[in-house]
Design a protein around this nucleic acid. Structure first.
Length: 285
DNA sequence: AGCTCTTCCTGAAAGC
DNA sequence: TGCTTTCAGGAAGAGC
């Protein structure tokens, strides 16, 4: 599923392929993905040049020459495929963009149709980004620490909450918590300075490495040119239930936290590691 | 405020 | 073997 590193990879691909092109028309094959007014979108896009493409959290923002913004979210299984020539739409394509004076096409492909597309009548800077938490690769440690201390909730749901911190999904939440050796059910406000630093750097390390390797190819993630990423071979806990922890060889566990499957090492991700290191032996769940 | 449950959707995997 | 059920998951919305 596309999370921050995958979306970053997709945005890099979009910049190489469609940045600077002028939209000729857009064909919406599955109208339900459009969350803004459908007619406004299909009528408003043609003639617009794509001036800038940015990622914010897991969102893709196309800044248009008329100062409006095309907002895309890949959901669970969304892909953006660029073809250098006319190509017949796949049955899972939800939208096709065509460009002026150019045979190339951009296909928004989305098997499970959780993706979304909106035309927003304002610039990319003044987006519904008020509903998005800080970027994990940009936020300072001080702000990060303040954020976690300001809430009282379990870490796992907090990391998945886009209004809390943007861009992290199930894979990278689990992997980051593993890096930081923190139990997913630890409360955000219970992390001491050491644990907070560990988590801050764990998230950064995990996301950066995933970006470097082109994202994780699970749920058939592919980049704009149809290439898979490679980060999944580096997954240490995600999707590894019952397999040995790469750090201590204990069996990786999978539990449900807030309805979401959560993978962790029960031995080296201690529930109370973060705030009560002296009590590590005593408690179990 | 924060948790839980539901909805959207499809294909793979598990169950019978 | 083949049909049926379950599950996965990002985000939003309802209800508590």
């Amino acid at each position: 599923m596309p999370e921050l590193p995958e979306v970053e990879t997709v945005v890099a691909g979009l910049r190489k392929t469609v940045l600077g092109k002028t939209i000729q028309n857009v064909e919406i094959l599955y109208p339900k993905i459009v969350k803004s007014d459908l007619k406004m979108l299909t009528k408003g896009l043609p003639g617009n040049r794509i001036k800038q493409i940015q990622r914010r959290g897991k969102n893709i923002l196309f800044s248009l020459s008329d100062r409006n913004t095309l907002w895309a979210h890949l959901g669970m299984t969304g892909h953006m495929f660029y073809f250098g020539k006319k190509v017949k739409a796949d049955k899972h394509d939800v939208a096709v963009f065509r460009f002026r004076g150019n045979p190339g096409e951009l296909h928004f492909h989305d098997l499970r149709k959780f993706g979304r597309l909106s035309l927003l009548n304002h610039s990319a800077d003044e987006l519904p980004t008020a509903r998005l938490g800080p970027e994990p690769l940009q936020v300072s440690f001080q702000e990060f620490a303040k954020l976690f201390r300001s809430r009282k909730r379990m870490l796992k749901p907090a990391l998945l909450d886009q209004s809390f911190i943007a861009g992290i999904g199930n894979i990278y939440a689990d992997e980051s918590l593993f890096e930081a050796k923190i139990h997913p059910q630890t409360r955000t406000d219970k992390l001491n300075e050491v644990a907070l630093r560990g988590l801050y750097w764990g998230i950064r390390k995990t996301l950066r490495k995933a970006i470097r390797t082109g994202g994780s190819s699970v749920a058939n993630y592919l980049d704009v040119d149809g290439n898979p990423g490679h980060f999944q071979i580096y997954h240490k806990v995600y999707g590894r239930e019952g397999k040995p922890c790469p750090r201590c060889k204990a069996k990786i566990k999978r539990i449900l936290v807030g309805q979401r499957s959560t993978h962790f090492c029960p031995k080296c991700q201690r529930f109370d590691f973060a705030h009560r290191p002296e009590n590590i032996e005593g408690k179990r769940r």
